[in-house]
Design a protein around this nucleic acid. Structure first.
Lengths: 195, 195, 195, 195
DNA sequence: AATGAATGAGCCTTCATTCAT
DNA sequence: TATGAATGAAGGCTCATTCAT
């Protein structure tokens, strides 16, 4: 008998399985069959919920971006001061979830893929513009006179760079060190003016 | 006697073709046949010069790291002042060659692959430690009192991050903007103390 | 639900196709594609039922040994006298099935391959020890005083030798002549004592 | 400068290397390159001395048959009595050279190949007819009244069978046991009449 | 909704053979 | 005579995708 409303459940399972597979085997060796097995379903069913493998990967990336956005929004809401709002955005990138080995690997893989997938490139680019614009907004409230665009770009680059560096240390299961570096860096940047 | 000394020539051709293929098709769709065709040779000959595809990819990555190192060393030798030595290292990463679309794509692929290849992870990690240690040396000569390790890590992360951001903008064939951002960032970092 | 229980059917088809291919093209030119085509399936499906080509070949060999064993057991059960039991074992090797050109070719290939495959060598050796021990048992019941081990070895060698000779005569589609020779040979061996 | 008269030397080296390769890697994995390497020459030169790989294999088999024939002739010449002449033929098959692991493996491989190579089948068949006719001649001198053809076929089959059985025991570097069995078997066969 | 059997294209790799030197 | 670079055709195997059930 057909199970109803399995759509969202299966999609969730498959996306999670995709991330884990990318981490475990690498994107190149992440096959539909492997994903299905990890999700506990048959290979055939994958194409019931995703048009093809590409779409599954794309939706996986979109899901990751959405998770990141949600974490930023959550922190943002709880922030009281302009300064806290700025660090809410930054801290989201260094959350426990975002820094889990699986997610780090998937981010890197999808970034790399984006160079040959206009679709991936588009949503990544969109996200980055939004990140920068959010950073600019926050910075503006802290100090209206600075060159916010420059600062925002620098902060965004720093975050991505720390991500990359963290990815190089497979043993680094800890996001504190990079976050502290980012925090300290941004603090200095802000103090500079006032110094 | 046969055609002698073709080894270095073919290896060069194949490595170059590999980088271009990665850029053009993506690492996942970079096949030995495509590489060979781009190098103007038959598919079979590839295994005459490289044990297998993995080795070709690995040597390609090693070659890229070596190129980067060479560019840094060249600039370093021509530097006169401590400040120039610091920027020699930074500028190397933003050279025309390093910032060509092909090389940027390949770098991203390299980073992503390293998560599933201990071999790649090792040489990348080695390179990064060397980069940081060079930055620390240069920073020490500029201002003996600073926390050089922190600064070096920040600079290294910023460089990588700008690379990533550049990779997201496929239209950005120009390395000036990221380099200027890096330069300005580092300048401010140095001035801060003296300010 | 999918087509279920195809496993045994396909495995049977593929093993049969393998034997025919070995006969038709030789082991060296027996490709997975040819086997598949002869079995009426696609090349890809072969690896659904056998881990790799080696396993298919191994299972083919095992199947042949099992067929031979079954024929011997069948004849053995129908035998009434000790003498009949002895000839039951011998006759099994000269059954219509065992002496078909395809099976003869495959046997030869199996023997030859065993020299470079410990796995094959093991099951062949096992089979031969069992054959000898069966021969010894039968011989013992006929004449308790003889040197049964010597006799058994001689009979076993003769059977194999006649197989080889038959293989050399591609025209020899008939197993009567070798069987008669074996029968006569063994009869004389038994009479010798009593004569 | 061209070396003259290298033909026979090279052909010898290559045939020897072929036999060793078949033993070491199996016929299926005996490549021209491997043979050449084992012979200490370049892969290309093989086709200077043999039209193609098939011919090299064919010549190898012919060489093995010739060696066997020579051993038989040598022993035959030294034989004094009819009985000795019969055992000269038999013993040749169990000489140290013929029973070396390499030669046993090569014999088996080439026997198996003969099923798909009319050329190989022809010279093998020819050799066997000659062997039988020689056995018949020898048997005739011992006892003019027997059924020589039957006896010759039985002896020939036994020899081949013992070869096969010996091939199954990779540890069996010793030809004594099979030869003794053959000797004893033939002796009994001859005594039977006189008993 | 779900299975897993089945397909067929394509990938990496090997190899007999040829050829320029 | 001899080399080893080079070719190109398969071969084994994998995999996204489809389909009967």
């Amino acid at each position: 008998m057909p199970k109803l409303g399995m759509g969202p459940v299966r999609r969730r399972q498959l996306i999670d399985a995709t991330i884990i597979s990318i981490h475990e085997y690498g994107l190149a060796d992440t096959t539909v069959t492997r994903i299905a097995k990890k999700a506990g379903v048959s290979p055939g069913i994958v194409h019931h919920y995703f048009a093809d493998k590409d779409e599954l990967l794309f939706e996986t990336m979109r899901d990751m971006l959405e998770n990141l956005r949600r974490e930023a929004v959550d922190r943002f809401k709880r922030a009281k001061t302009p300064n806290q709002r700025l660090f809410a955005i930054i801290d989201a990138s260094f959350s426990r979830q975002q820094f889990s080995p699986e997610v780090v690997t998937a981010w890197l893989a999808l970034y790399a893929s984006s160079r040959n997938s206009p679709r991936l490139a588009r949503i990544l680019s969109l996200y980055h513009r939004r990140l920068c614009s959010n950073l600019v907004s926050a910075l503006k409230q802290i100090d209206p006179d600075e060159n916010h665009h420059f600062q925002a770009e620098a902060i965004a680059a720093l975050i991505d760079g720390l991500y990359l560096r963290a990815a190089l240390n497979p043993d680094l299961h800890d996001m504190d060190s990079p976050r502290q570096l980012a925090t300290r860096f941004v603090s200095q940047m802000l103090e500079q003016k006032n110094g």
